[in-house]
Design a binder for these strands. Structure first.
Lengths: 121, 121
DNA sequence: ATGTCACCTGGAGCGCACTCCAGGTCAAGC
DNA sequence: GCTTGACCTGGAGTGCGCTCCAGGTGACAT
């Protein structure tokens, strides 16, 4: 059962140490366990949860929503329907975002092709 | 050759009137023509350019880069290679972003499926 | 004439998500 | 035993991209 220092977790999750502290402070992370001298020791579970947070954040979920999800995830099974609802709504937004990006990427490609058609330098 | 009021342009482009003024102020838009009393009258070209800016914005291009592109686009044909380079770099980032979103959307779906597997409420 | 309303300017303010800082504590290597 | 350096806390600061405000002007309907 391994534990990790802040630097190791930052390295693995891509969150800065400051962000890890910030996430703990606002309650996205449950209080991380400490050594006798007060230094953080992240558990395997902490790291897994951070991986999940990264997924939500990178798909554009606002901190406020992640906070709500974290709260639900700390609750019992009766919160599962709301967790599902929250994730489904998020997933729909992500899908729309992907569709929009694809359409706009194509427009960018067209512009590049147009510039190219003006005669390669 | 039609012209548009700020409200019409806001409506068509999805940018707020404040954002239109802001874009003009920072030079993303060339000075928009005015009526005798100083009100903006956007041309068809202004609206088309704003549509293009929206494409860049919505695909995550920072304002600073859009500004650079705007500058190049005001230049002569010798700037075309740099415009192409800028757009190609951007397009690559957009593609990576799409790939990342797709992978993470799938992770979100898995989580939803997992919650569902725990027994539908 | 009057009221309403869209619009103008310059500049201040805001929300988000961090990021940095000062001042301090411990652990380990030389 | 001393230095180095990773880490601690509370709180202030930052960057981005808008967004809002005060105070004012002009156009148009009644």
């Amino acid at each position: 059962m391994s534990v990790y220092t802040p630097a190791q977790v930052a390295d693995e999750t891509g969150f800065s140490i400051d962000t890890l502290r910030y996430y703990e402070r606002i309650g996205l992370l449950e209080p991380v366990s400490r050594t006798a001298s007060g230094r953080r020791r992240f558990s395997e579970d902490d790291v897994a949860w951070l991986g999940w947070l990264r997924c939500l954040r990178d798909t554009g979920m606002p901190i406020a929503d992640m906070l709500r999800f974290a709260e639900l995830a700390r609750g019992d099974d009766s919160t599962i329907p709301e967790r599902v609802a929250l994730l489904e709504a998020h997933e729909r937004r992500v899908e729309e975002h992907i569709a929009d990006l694809r359409a706009k990427r194509s427009r960018i490609r067209d512009k590049i092709a147009y510039y190219r058609s003006l005669g390669p330098a």
